[in-house]
Structures are given as structure tokens and as C-alpha cells.
């Protein structure tokens, strides 16, 4: 643990999961798209070890280009499947259709899980931009991303 009290291992994402996330975000256009991430916690802590082991594409219950709410049925489906694999929900991804891959004030305000990774995919330019954050007590900390094969 660092002096600032945070542990921020890189988010490690398999190429296939990266493509699943970005593909789901494009499929959701013109609305924001969202989904859940599952992985494992660092031993003895509530913090993810950073490796994404499963991606769950979910419906945006808001059906909106400006906000998202993970559909509650999709949320329990993700939790159940993660449970069955011995995994934990470790984060969420969602798209920004016309803004940068940076947490919006709404994202910060509604970030309920300080332990989670918040992945944002910006589709505003020609190529998707995917970044990852922890949001703790209103503070945004960027988490590096490592793409794995």
C-alpha cells in the first residue's frame, strides 16, 4: 500500500475482453452502453488484483445517450455467474458517446464502490479510447491498463 493509502495495480485486460467491451459500446449507440467486470481480490483486501476474468455486457436501463444504469436483472445475472466461477464483481464499464474517457460529475457522484474499477470508453473520435479509474470519496485516480493476449 502506498503512502496515499491506495493500492492501484494496473487493470489487466485480455484482448478478447477489450474487444467485447468496445463492441458492446458501439452496439449501444446512440445510447451509452454498460457492463460489469469480474475478477479476484488481492488476498486479505477488498481491492481487485486488477486482472479482468470475465466481462458481462448489460442493458442500459436508462436507454439514454447521457446516463446509464446497469439493468438490475443483468446485474444479478453477472453476480450469479461471477459467484459460480469464484469471482467477485470488481468494476463496471460504460461508454461516453460524445465526451472524453474521463469520469463525468455524474459518474463521480454515483460511484458507489471505492474498491471498484470504473472503465470508460469514449467513442467521440474515430478510434475508441478506453481508460480506467478508481473513484474514492469524489477523487479520481487513473489506473493504468495493460492489454494481454
Amino acid at each position: 500500500m502506498g503512502d496515499d493509502g491506495f493500492v492501484e495495480p494496473a487493470l489487466r485486460l485480455r484482448q478478447q475482453d477489450y474487444l467485447a467491451i468496445v463492441g458492446h459500446c458501439y452496439d449501444g449507440l446512440p445510447d451509452e452502453a454498460c457492463g460489469m467486470l469480474a475478477g479476484r481480490l488481492q488476498a486479505g483486501t477488498l481491492l481487485p488484483d486488477g486482472r479482468v476474468e470475465a466481462v458481462y455486457t448489460c442493458r442500459n436501463a436508462d436507454a439514454s445517450a447521457k446516463t446509464y444504469t446497469v439493468d438490475s436483472r443483468d446485474l444479478i445475472r453477472a453476480l450469479r455467474d461471477a459467484d459460480s466461477k469464484g469471482l467477485e464483481l470488481i468494476g463496471v464499464f460504460h461508454s461516453h458517446t460524445h465526451t472524453d474517457a474521463w469520469p463525468s460529475p455524474t459518474d463521480v457522484r454515483q460511484a458507489a464502490e471505492p474498491n471498484w474499477l470504473y472503465v470508460i470508453v469514449s467513442l467521440k473520435d474515430g478510434d475508441p479510447v478506453l481508460r480506467s479509474f478508481r473513484i474514492t470519496d469524489g477523487n479520481i485516480g487513473e489506473v493504468p491498463i495493460v492489454l494481454e493476449s
Binding site: C34, S104, A112
Partner: peptide, 10 residues
Amino acid sequence: VSIIPAVAGG
């Protein structure tokens, strides 16, 4: 019974 924080943002 499962408790999950609502997952939402903008």
C-alpha cells in the same frame, strides 16, 4: 439474498 450497490453514472 444478495445486496449490490446500484451501478449508474453519466
